[in-house]
Amino acid sequence: MEQEKHHIVGYKVYIYVLLALLVLTGLSVAVTSIELGALTVAVALILAATKGALVLTYFMHLKFDSLMFRVMVSLVLAVFAVVLVVTLLDYLYM
């Protein structure tokens, strides 16, 4: 059986991704040490989501794999988002 061709990701790409992740970590520690109330939570979660996206895209090879994987991951994240939002709306208006 013929295996499909694989994309080889260079070491440098991973080093750049790590540097970006470390900068984002530093940023989230710095930002959350300032008390901004609800804004702090929002900023911390946006930074975490950005880090998560980098891990999924590069470390987990979603950028280089077939479209099927990207579609599946998006669907699962969408399902989770719906459950989260519906639950929180329920508590917010209870």
């Binding site: 520690v29 979660l45 975490a48 998560g52 891990v55 999924l56 987990m60």
Partner: peptide
């Protein structure tokens, strides 16, 4: 992939418990 998943979960645990 499994190890990145462990990393991914920590990326969210860290701000929610330690930072906010």
């Amino acid at each position: 992939l499994y190890w990145h998943l462990v990393d991914l979960i920590w990326i969210f645990l860290f701000p929610l418990f330690y930072l906010i």
